[in-house]
């Protein structure tokens, strides 16, 4: 136990957080425009993770192509999610419960489709990196952690730019506070919603590949990361992108810390306990906009 050990843990934790950030920002995007959570997010993620895995069998262990395939699949799957489980409800109902039931059902369906095709077996991604570690002085670093961190940072940077600087981003921000007036300005709201679902799905696809790199794929990661994504979104303050980013970082670090203190099998207990205490102290989440009834 020395400095380099803690440094590696820190980097591992931050990179873990970056993976959550990719999930949670997709989650927050949907919440911000529609004011409900898409519980099919994990389903989209697990589907595209497996499709990415299939892609590696055809194109080989190419990280960039795999990411692109998974992102594209995630985006397209999420468009189906919108059209099948949300579109009609959005037009006819304001009942949050219906959205909850509809999206969680969709998530289960997606996850079970994966189970049908791959059974419950465990799969793992091929090794994308020739070298697993690199060394600076006496300290060796896991390359995959660095890559994931860098990719997440670039993707999130682009997303923020798109939201802040483009006409589309402006429409998304307008839509998030006032859908009706946004449509009165001539914006085709349905199209913007679909595009947002595509982006969130693409993020879920990238997250799926990250999960595949970090751990072993099984269909259950769908529901597991739905829970974690929801957790991060709630800690961040539902619908807030900045909040989601910070919450992801915190959760990534906390989880890594607990896996050292309690061991990996007990780590989730520590994490959930942390979340409970956090929500007890600050139920409105980091961003501070109270959205209790909207979950």
């Amino acid at each position: 136990m020395n400095f380099s050990y803690y440094l590696q843990l820190l980097i591992g934790g931050v990179s873990n957080g970056a993976m959550y950030a990719i999930i949670a920002v997709g989650w927050a995007l949907i919440f911000s425009i529609l004011k409900f959570s898409n519980f099919a997010h994990g389903g989209t993620m697990v589907c595209s993770a497996y499709l990415g895995l299939l892609a590696t069998r055809i194109i080989g262990a190419n990280l960039w192509l795999t990411l692109a395939v998974a992102a594209l699949c995630g985006g397209l799957i999420n468009i189906l999610v919108e059209l099948i489980s949300f579109h009609r409800l959005r037009k006819s109902s304001k009942q949050v419960l219906l959205f909850f039931v509809s999206s969680i059902t969709m998530g289960m369906l997606l996850q079970n489709l994966v189970t049908l095709r791959f059974s419950g077996l465990f799969y793992s991604y091929p090794n994308f990196f020739k070298q697993r570690f690199f060394r600076i002085g006496n300290i060796s670093f896991d390359i995959s952690n660095f890559m994931m961190l860098a990719i997440a940072a670039v993707i999130l940077g682009i997303l923020i730019l798109v939201l802040q600087k483009t006409r589309f981003g402006m429409a998304v921000r307008a839509l998030s506070v006032d859908p009706r007036t946004t449509s009165l300005m001539g914006v085709n709201v349905d199209l913007v919603v679909l595009a947002t679902f595509f982006i969130a799905g693409a993020l879920a696809g990238v997250a799926g590949v990250f999960v595949g790199i970090r751990t072993i794929l099984s269909p259950q990661i769908g529901s597991m990361y739905t829970v974690k994504g929801f957790m991060v979104a709630v800690i961040g303050g539902l619908g807030s992108l900045n909040g989601a980013l910070f919450a992801s970082l915190i959760l990534g670090l906390v989880e890594t810390a607990f896996s050292v203190i309690l061991g990996t099998s007990l780590a989730p207990v520590g994490t959930f306990f942390f979340v409970l205490i956090f929500l007890f102290l600050r139920p409105q989440g980091l961003a501070g906009v109270f959205a209790m009834e909207k979950a």
Binding site: M170, R173, A174, S176, V177, D178, T181, T182, L184
Partner: peptide, 10 residues
């Protein structure tokens, strides 16, 4: 629209 309805966050 009635009530101005400007986008407050823009």
């Amino acid at each position: 629209p009635e009530g101005r309805r400007v986008f407050p966050n823009l």
